[in-house]
């Protein structure tokens, strides 16, 4: 049997846990900058890579990661190779900055077409910059293949896919034939940590770098998000009164008294 071919779509994003004071909003150019912290692979896309690698371990699947963006960092995306991904394709073009979900899906679908055959397409359930959660779903629609959203686990039996799909209060087991697109959630587990040796090796591996021309994309047809305004959120900070006490135990006791009073007032 031919190996299963998995394509994982992974986005480069700014550090999602950057503290608010490092987030810079330029309301004129309508751009957000995160100062002084390196970007990374979107966390749900890391989960998607992990899900693919688990299938690779069991079935010998071939895993290709494809990333669309502008000014992509090779050193960051090569981490995918270091953890065990077979091929890396970067679709990097200055016209791909802040594309909306549909345009991103459009570029991804063309890249996937060029990559060729596939059995499974994985995306993260959402990206931590626009928090939109649409690209995977639209990509599935464009490719015309079945979609399972919010996937917490995947196993392969023959040519069919058994999926744990997260639902409120639990999960649903569903099954389908390949090809299928899955949007992956954190329940599949965190991406494995590469060893120093594989990190060094991954730096020397060949990768594909494509531009819009290579995919015959007319960049005039792509849309960035149509933003009217970018602002800071309303201030959510509160005045914290710290519970006094010389030891943690004493502070614990004082918290009990303070909370009892607060509860009574509330009721």
């Amino acid at each position: 049997m031919n190996p299963i071919k998995i394509i994982v779509c992974a986005k480069q994003v700014p550090d999602p846990e950057a503290p608010a004071n490092l987030v810079e909003i330029d309301s004129d150019t309508k751009m957000v900058k995160i100062k002084g912290l390196p970007p990374g692979i979107n966390s749900y896309d890391q989960n998607a890579i992990e899900a693919a690698l688990k299938i690779k371990e069991k079935t010998g699947a071939k895993v290709t990661v494809v990333s669309v963006g502008s000014k992509l960092s090779q050193s960051i995306l090569r981490k995918a190779l270091a953890v065990g991904v077979d091929d890396l394709v970067l679709v990097d073009d200055s016209d791909f900055k802040d594309l909306d979900s549909r345009s991103t899906a459009d570029v991804l679908s063309k890249a996937i077409e060029k990559i060729g055959e596939y059995d499974l397409v994985f995306t993260g359930r959402q990206a931590s910059d626009w928090d939109s959660g649409q690209t995977g779903l639209i990509l599935g629609e464009m490719l015309g293949i079945p979609i399972v959203n919010l996937v917490g686990g995947v196993t392969i039996e023959d040519r069919s896919v058994s999926v744990k799909r997260m639902i409120p209060g639990g999960y649903e087991r569903v099954k389908g034939d390949m090809p299928v697109l899955l949007t992956i959630s954190n329940e599949v587990g965190e991406m494995r940590v590469p060893s120093l040796r594989t990190v060094l090796e991954s730096r020397k591996r060949p990768i594909e770098v494509w531009q819009s021309d290579d995919l015959k994309i007319d960049t005039q047809e792509l849309n960035p998000f149509e933003i009217l305004a970018l602002t800071s959120p309303p201030n959510m900070e509160r005045e914290c009164s710290f519970i006094e006490g010389d030891s943690p135990e004493e502070r614990g006791e004082n918290l009990a008294m303070t909370l009892k009073k607060a509860f009574l007032k509330n009721n």
Binding site: A18, S128, D131
Partner: peptide, 10 residues
């Protein structure tokens, strides 16, 4: 967007 660090109007 950005987890809640920025508010955008579209």
């Amino acid at each position: 967007i950005y987890g809640g660090n920025v508010v955008a109007t579209f």
